[in-house]
Simulated scan of single mutants.
Amino acid sequence: MNLTLSWQSFAVLSAVFAAMTAILAKVGVAHMNSNMATLIRTVVILMVTALIISARSEWQKPSGGSWVGWTCLLASGVTTGLSWLCYFRALQLGPVSVVAPVDKLSVALVIVSGWLILGEPFTLKGAIGGALVVIGSLVLIL
C-alpha cells in the first residue's frame, strides 16, 4: 500500500504533535534545567530522524545546493535551537496554555516574511488569518 499524504495532512499532524510537545515539555521541564531539557529533546530528535532515514534507506552524501542554501540551512538550525531554548524556558516559567499560543505568533511573522522576503502573495485571507493569530495571542497575554 502506497500511503501518500498531502502537505495539509502533514501540517495537521505537525500541529497535533506540537500540541503534544507543549504538554509533555511542560511536565518534563518542571524539575529540570530548561537548557538541559532542550539538549535531551534535541538528541531524541536526532535519533528518531536517523531511525526514519535508516528505515526508508534515505542516507546519502550531502551534496549539491548553493552556498546560499547551505548557509540558510545552517542558520535555520541555529534559529531552531534558539527558539527551542527560549520555548522551554518560557514553558518552565509560564502556563503552557499561554506560552504555546504566544509561540504561534510565528505564524503571523511567517506570513509577513513570506510576502516581504520570498515574494509570496499577500492575500486578504492571509492578512485576516495573521491578524487573528496576533489578536488571539494578545488576548491571552494581556
Rank of each mutant, 00 (worst) to 15 (best):
A30S: 15
L116G: 03
L13G: 14
L39D: 04
S106D: 13
A50W: 09
A15G: 04
W115P: 07
A90R: 09
A30M: 04
I117R: 01
T123C: 08
C72A: 13
Q92E: 13
N35T: 09
V96Q: 10
G119Y: 13
L3V: 15
V43D: 09
S97Y: 09
F88A: 11
S57N: 15
V96H: 06
S54K: 11
W70F: 11
M1H: 12
G114W: 00
S83T: 06
W7G: 15
E120P: 11
I40V: 05
V44Y: 04
V68W: 15
S106K: 03
L124T: 06
L13P: 00
S9T: 14
I135K: 06
Q60H: 14
V99L: 02
S76C: 07
C72F: 03
S76M: 02
H31M: 10
L138Y: 14
W115Y: 11
L85W: 09
N2M: 10
K61H: 12
A22C: 14
A19H: 08
G69N: 05
P95T: 03
V12P: 04
I117Q: 07
V134K: 00
S106R: 04
A50T: 13
S97V: 13
I141N: 03
A11Y: 10
F17W: 04
T49P: 05
S113I: 08
V112C: 08
V139H: 07
A55W: 05
Q8I: 15
W70V: 06
M32Q: 12
A37V: 04
T123R: 12
G130Y: 04
T71W: 09
